[in-house]
């Protein structure tokens, strides 16, 4: 059986690649690095060929693998530079919000992305990241508080 050969891998890429790219971007701040992380995640998929119950299980697994790869890459880069590269290619709408989210620390960025963009619940994020729900809730609350402060300061300018 070749579960990930030919058409199947194409369909898996179509279903998940953009979501994976955005999750990796939330960690790495760099589109090209995020693309590399996505490719590596798919290579792990080919190598391990896990069995998924359904499309949402497949997406959750791929997001988790992508986030892990991105975190490892971010850690590796931090050994050489103080800050990750900052891209400012966000569109006008939401530009501030995205740039503020990218200023949050890595654990907060990941939780914000999975909650705000992917629409996962706190319990789902906890399962996906192997974290207690209380931790996810705390991070989300703190991240929102920091975001609110940043937006208020921006409005006051």
């Amino acid at each position: 059986m070749e579960p990930f050969a030919g058409k199947d891998i194409d369909q898996i890429v179509e279903r998940n690649a953009q979501h994976m790219l955005r999750a990796a971007y939330a960690v790495l701040h760099s589109t090209s690095d995020a693309q590399d992380a996505v490719q590596d995640a798919f290579l792990i998929l080919l190598q391990k060929q896990p069995t998924f119950h359904d499309a949402s299980h497949e997406k959750a697994w791929l997001l988790r693998v992508t986030i892990n790869i991105a975190k490892n890459e971010a850690k590796r880069k931090r050994r050489f530079v103080d800050e990750l590269p900052q891209e400012t290619a966000a569109p006008e709408t939401g530009e501030d919000v995205l740039s503020f989210v990218l200023q949050l620390s890595e654990p907060y960025r990941i939780v914000i992305h999975l909650y705000y963009y992917e629409g996962y619940s706190i319990q789902e994020i906890a399962r996906l990241l192997h974290l207690p729900a209380a931790t996810v809730g705390t991070r989300l609350a703190r991240a929102r508080k920091q975001l609110k402060t940043m937006l208020e300061q921006e409005d006051a300018k």
Binding site: D10, R22, Y25, G94, V97, L98, V101, Y116
Partner: peptide, 21 residues
């Protein structure tokens, strides 16, 4: 909504997706 709109702009192009496949 603002975050979603900004994040939607981060995407593989058709060509990049084709290369990835």
């Amino acid at each position: 909504r603002a975050y979603q709109t900004a994040m939607d702009e981060i995407a593989f192009s058709e060509t990049e997706l084709h290369r990835l496949k």
